[in-house]
Computed example of a mutant assay.
Amino acid sequence: MPQGQIRKALSGFYYVYYQGETYQTRGRGNFRNRNLTPLVGDFVEFESGNKDEGVVKELLERKNELVRPPIANIDLGVVVTSAVEPDFSTQLLDRFLVTLENKGIEAVIYITKTDLIDEETYRSLKKYQQYYESIGYMVYLPTNDEKEQAIQDLCGHFANHLTVFMGQSGAGKSTLLNTISPELVLKTAAISTSLGRGKHTTRHVELIPLYEGLVADTPGFSAIDLAEIELVDLKELFPDFVQVQDQCRFRGCIHHKEPGCKVKELVDEGTIAKYRYANYVQFYDEIRQRKPDYSKKK
Rank of each mutant, 00 (worst) to 15 (best):
L237R: 07
K264R: 15
V232Y: 07
E230K: 15
T179G: 00
D285E: 15
L231Y: 03
E183K: 11
R203T: 14
Y211T: 00
I191M: 12
S194N: 14
V205H: 05
A223F: 14
E206D: 09
T193L: 14
D225K: 11
T218Y: 06
D246L: 09
Y277Q: 06
G213P: 04
E258G: 08
Q243Y: 04
D268K: 15
Y211C: 12
V185E: 14
I254Y: 10
L184Y: 06
A278I: 00
P182G: 10
F238D: 04
A223T: 10
R276C: 07
N279W: 00
Y275Q: 09
E258F: 10
E228H: 15
K199L: 12
V267H: 12
F283A: 07
I272P: 04
L207S: 05
T179M: 13
V244P: 04
A216M: 08
I208L: 14
A189W: 01
Y211W: 04
F238W: 03
E258P: 06
G260V: 06
I224G: 01
D246C: 05
L195I: 09
E212V: 00
F250D: 07
Q245K: 13
L210E: 08
S181Q: 14
V215L: 14
A273G: 00
Q245E: 12
E265L: 13
T271V: 15
Y277I: 08
P239I: 07
T193Y: 12
K264L: 12
P219Q: 06
V267R: 07
K264Y: 00
I191C: 03
F241N: 06
E206P: 01
E265N: 08
V263C: 08
T188Q: 05
D225E: 13
I272S: 06
S194D: 15
T271N: 11
D285F: 08
K187P: 01
K262S: 09
F283Y: 02
K199T: 14
L184W: 11
E183N: 10
V281P: 02
A273S: 13
A278C: 00
L184I: 09
Y280C: 04
I254T: 14
K274P: 00
F241Y: 09
V185L: 13
F238L: 08
F250S: 09
V205T: 13
R276W: 04
P182E: 05
N279K: 05
I180L: 15
Y275W: 13
I254C: 13
K235F: 01
T271I: 15
P239D: 07
C253P: 03
D233P: 00
K187E: 15
Y277D: 07
R203Q: 12
D285T: 06
P219V: 01
E269G: 05
Y275G: 00
V185A: 13
E258K: 11
R197S: 13
D225Y: 02
